[in-house]
Design a protein around this nucleic acid. Structure first.
Lengths: 149, 149
DNA sequence: GCAATCCGGACCCATTGGGTCCCCTTTGAA
DNA sequence: TTCAAAGGGGACCCAATGGGTCCGGATTGC
């Protein structure tokens, strides 16, 4: 279905909120502000901090802080941070030995141009283009995620 | 993970085989030729025929026939035929009432540019660019499917 | 009339995404 | 010095659904 995990969507919502509020925000605070369950928000923030998109500040008065403005943050970076590498097929970028039918598989490695195309399309889109506009409101649970035509 | 279902991959393999052989091919024949389980091949062909990509001929001496050369068949058509509409998020293209938090969801409908971008990228790629090159060999079972960076 | 073949649906199972909970570590403030 | 607030990391469970199989019915050439 060419779907993106809900977490990616959550990440955009959380990042949007983070930028709208500015400064350091706590996970519970962001959860309350977005309507997303707190443990889920914490999970998303953890992944984003590991990817270097936000910074986690520990201890009392801690929280999370944006490291880059959303206008310079490519959507593909968020997707990679949350969902892992963008790869439409398993046999991608030299995945030798993974396909048990290497010899006979006629499409082996041929999805690369597709992956490149999608990568390019996603890299060109900044998170700020998707995140909530000037008027930051409260967010809530979202549904699944796909790419449709 | 931004993955595409295995069926889409199978479809490309089957279509490739169909064009390589030319004329009318039976589902069992294509299954044998590709190494994919016969019921699975039948399922894929059924979906492709519903989408108008191939034509099913019933009765004895029946089989499936390509309606268009792969060089003019966009990859997005195959994906739509197999996996359904390309939509990264549930709240897409006016999915009113689906999101229980319409009022408060800050990213509602904002994934549209992303969907458009991906649609465009996929439409520009023809199946013939992915399908096996001049040298058609036997195909076999494939693994999952993703889009990576 | 028989056999080959597509058509359509129902059905089942394994994978995994989505979500929750718990405990440890860190650190500012009283 | 102590305590509480907050992040860090992992284990765990449940449900959705993709992947695959099987069956009976309809159609058509021999």
């Amino acid at each position: 279905m060419l779907r993106v995990s809900k977490f990616t969507d959550y990440a955009v919502v959380v990042l949007s909120r983070l930028e709208a509020e500015g400064g350091v925000q706590t996970a519970p605070g962001l959860a309350a502000g977005t309507g997303i369950a707190e443990p889920t928000v914490a999970k998303v923030l953890k992944m984003l901090s590991q990817a270097g998109i936000v910074e986690g500040l520990r201890g009392a008065r801690g929280g999370y802080r944006l490291l880059r403005p959303l206008s310079s943050l490519g959507l593909s970076e968020v997707i990679v941070a949350i969902d892992g590498p963008i790869a439409l097929t398993a046999c991608v970028d030299g995945g030798f030995g993974l396909c048990e039918a290497e010899q006979t598989c006629p499409v082996r490695g041929r999805w690369d141009p597709v992956n490149s195309a999608i990568r390019g399309a996603l890299s060109a889109i900044m998170v700020s283009e998707i995140a909530s506009p000037p008027v930051p409101r409260r967010a809530a649970a979202l549904q699944p995620v796909l790419v449709a035509e």
